[in-house]
């Protein structure tokens, strides 16, 4: 009977799904404001995973503490990337942005491959084997932290967008770019800020993910597809949609892994993506364009 495995699988799926959601929040924010698809999003996640890994193995910094360092660092990196690399290649054509971020992904992934080889690495932190009894299943503490941490960062992002002047400016640019410019919003600055915030979310996701996951240079590619699926499923630019879709996809992957075998786990996600794009391209929560 698979019932005994089902509940833990769903819980594990939710834990991974929360990370998917957090990654996708960054992507959907960038899409919602800049209307560009950042293909390098997964590669930046991979880079953040390596950063957290090396901070732990070389500096002894706990991944959860590393959030404090990596979020500002990745925010700055995102800001600079948007300003110096992505914006100048735009030339008013959205395909160019897709291609330039693809170029970034190729560069980052292969630099990582060159520097750190394709060896799979993970950290064995002290809480890796500590579990909590939830009554229906045992779950590693790190997964629980990841789950609630991801939700907390999601809430933080929401608060930033809702209550601050920066959030207001970002929403204004997303809604009406030229109008925002006319009332004194520096649109190019807001674009870069948005890209930076989205990249910072990736850093947070990486730090929460690392204790229960592994890192290889290829991990970004796997994640970028999942993040796109999450964004499309939730409706391009929708926050609650990305959250819900992320959790759903985590469960889908866990269940496909359970019933079809580990290697086919991600197939479920691609199939969801294809069906979604073909039959409801606006997503579950998106408005008709």
């Amino acid at each position: 009977m698979l019932g005994g495995l089902l509940v833990p699988a769903v819980i594990n799926g939710l834990a991974l799904g929360a990370i998917y959601a957090l990654t996708a929040l960054g992507l959907t924010l960038i899409y919602g404001v800049l209307h560009i698809i950042n293909f390098a999003h997964g590669s930046l996640l991979m880079l953040a995973l390596y950063a957290a890994l090396f901070l732990y193995t070389l500096g002894g910094v706990d991944p959860y503490v590393a959030i404090l360092v990596l979020m500002p660092a990745f925010f700055a990196a995102g800001y600079v990337l948007q300003r110096l690399v992505i914006q100048p290649a735009w030339h008013g054509r959205d395909e160019n942005v897709l291609l330039v971020t693809l170029g970034l992904a190729i560069v980052i992934d292969n630099l990582a491959l060159w520097l750190w080889t394709s060896t799979t690495r993970s950290i064995d932190s002290r809480y890796a084997f500590e579990v909590v009894d939830l009554g229906v299943a045992f779950i590693p503490i790190a997964k629980l932290v990841g789950f609630f941490g991801a939700l907390a960062f999601g809430a933080l992002l929401w608060a930033l967008m809702t209550f601050t002047d920066l959030g207001k400016a970002i929403r204004a640019v997303a809604r009406e770019r030229e109008g925002a410019r006319l009332v004194g919003v520096r649109v190019e600055h807001i674009y870069a800020m948005t890209f930076g915030i989205g990249t910072a979310m990736v850093a947070a996701a990486a730090c929460l993910l690392l204790p229960t996951f592994y890192v290889t240079p290829q991990v970004g590619y796997a994640f970028v597809l999942v993040a796109f699926t999450t964004v499309v499923l939730g409706g391009m630019g929708s926050f609650p949609g990305a959250l819900f879709a992320g959790l759903l996809l985590g469960v889908v992957e866990a269940l496909c892994g359970l019933y079809l075998g580990e290697s086919l786990g991600q197939i479920g996600i691609f199939v969801v993506f294809i069906l979604m794009v073909l039959f409801r391209p606006t997503g579950l929560f998106g408005a008709r364009a």
Binding site: G103, V107, N110
Partner: peptide, 17 residues
């Protein structure tokens, strides 16, 4: 390994710009 692809990526970025 990978270094020629890094170059391709950089070329793509430069070409687009």
């Amino acid at each position: 390994p990978g270094l020629n692809l890094v170059l391709y990526g950089l070329l793509l970025i430069a070409a687009l710009r």
